[in-house]
């Protein structure tokens, strides 16, 4: 507000960029943010489907029969902690501390892997008990929603591996830092989606 612009400098584009940031990094991050917002719509449609089909059990098993909240609480804890460890990895990157960055990324990867393993075990267990994706409309919606989130986590872990290869090859360069920032947005976003999943699917499913 205090800035007074009398005549634009030559080359003035209307963008206010911080001195120590390259423009393209900010643009990339905004672009990636827009992608994440579009991903929100994907999850919104899955949540809407889940809500609409929430009572269509076709006389079969209901979530009350199968959901184990202790199990889900541990799953949630793993993902929550991984969001924190990714934050610590980002701090490592900002301090140009490669050891710290790789160590915390390793923790994040392991926690993500643990979460995914638990989710797959849960899917296997439910299917085994007689609630597979084709059992009823409810379970179709359940597997579609929770499975899509799991696929995103898997994609994030895949991405993490390739980012570590980049980091080991080139170090913490500007380009790698931008990539890491994008993955950070993605990883925290998945945590936010999981908040909605455990609230709407698991907690409301058994209450």
């Amino acid at each position: 507000m205090a800035t007074q612009m009398i005549a634009p400098e030559p080359g003035y584009t209307g963008f206010v960029a911080e001195e120590h940031h390259h423009d393209y990094a900010g643009d990339t991050l905004l672009g990636f943010w827009i992608y994440i917002m579009s991903d929100c719509i994907l999850f919104a449609t899955l949540f809407a489907t889940y809500a609409v089909l929430g009572n269509s059990f076709a006389g079969g098993l209901t979530p009350k029969d199968l959901f184990d909240l202790n199990f889900v609480a541990v799953e949630t804890g793993l993902l929550l902690l991984s969001s924190f460890t990714f934050g610590m990895a980002m701090l490592g990157a900002q301090h140009k501390n490669m050891t710290q960055l790789l160590l915390w990324l390793g923790f994040t990867f392991s926690l993500g892997g643990g979460f995914l393993a638990m989710e797959l075990y849960e899917f296997y267990h439910f299917s085994h008990e007689g609630a597979g994706p084709t059992t009823s409309a409810y379970w179709s919606a359940f597997y579609a929603l929770v499975g899509t989130h799991g696929l995103h986590v898997f994609a994030g872990m895949f991405w993490m591996v390739f980012l570590v290869i980049h980091l080991l090859k080139d170090g913490i360069t500007e380009a790698n830092f931008t990539r890491l920032s994008c993955l950070s947005l993605f990883w925290h976003f998945l945590d936010i989606i999981w908040i909605c999943v455990f609230s709407m699917v698991y907690l409301m499913g058994v209450m």
Binding site: W33, M37, C40, I41, A44, A48, T49, A51, V52
Partner: peptide, 17 residues
């Protein structure tokens, strides 16, 4: 963009229900 998406999400989810 986040506020816009919250609006879209609300329309999709609440509207469907």
């Amino acid at each position: 963009s986040a506020v816009f998406i919250v609006l879209i999400v609300a329309i999709v989810v609440l509207g469907s229900i």
